[in-house]
């Protein structure tokens, strides 16, 4: 079970996808990278070093943590305790670093950009 073929460990997820030091599956990261990178200048496929997804696995953790923290700040601001996508949108709009995500959160919010969260009915509103 622990036996891993050469080539299998890093890119196919395997053990490391679940319990290893990489919290996110490297194979998935690599797929997304491949799609984003497209072709090399000479028309050949762009290649991706095996270490690049390793870096991304950690980077995405940092990224998720940061955007979550900022979204949570927006949640608290609204005196709620459920993080909604509007909170994520607020975090994106309030952070220059996340400018590249504006389209993502706008698309998710139905093109309206930052809208006031309207889901308070499922919250008790009281914050400790």
């Amino acid at each position: 079970m622990r036996q891993a073929r050469p080539y299998s460990g890093i890119f196919c997820g395997g053990v490391s996808a679940r319990t290893g030091p990489h919290a996110l599956p490297l194979a998935r990261i690599k797929k997304i990278m491949k799609r984003s990178a497209g072709e090399a200048a000479d028309g050949g496929a762009r290649m991706i070093s095996g270490e690049a997804p390793v870096v991304f696995s950690k980077a995405c953790e940092l990224f998720i943590a940061e955007i979550t923290r900022r979204a949570w700040a927006a949640t608290l601001e609204g005196k709620r305790r459920t993080v909604h996508k509007e909170d994520v949108a607020t975090a994106v709009h309030n952070t220059d670093l996340f400018d590249f995500l504006v389209d993502v959160v706008m698309a998710d919010a139905g093109g309206g950009g930052h809208a006031a969260p309207g889901y308070d009915d499922d919250e008790n509103g009281a914050l400790e």
Binding site: V83, K85, L101, D108
Partner: peptide, 20 residues
């Protein structure tokens, strides 16, 4: 803290966008 499903999906989208 609770996380709504749409927030989870949005973050999921954002991660892919970040990698891209």
């Amino acid at each position: 803290a609770k996380i709504s499903d749409d927030a989870k999906e949005t973050i999921q989208e954002c991660v892919s966008e970040y990698i891209s």
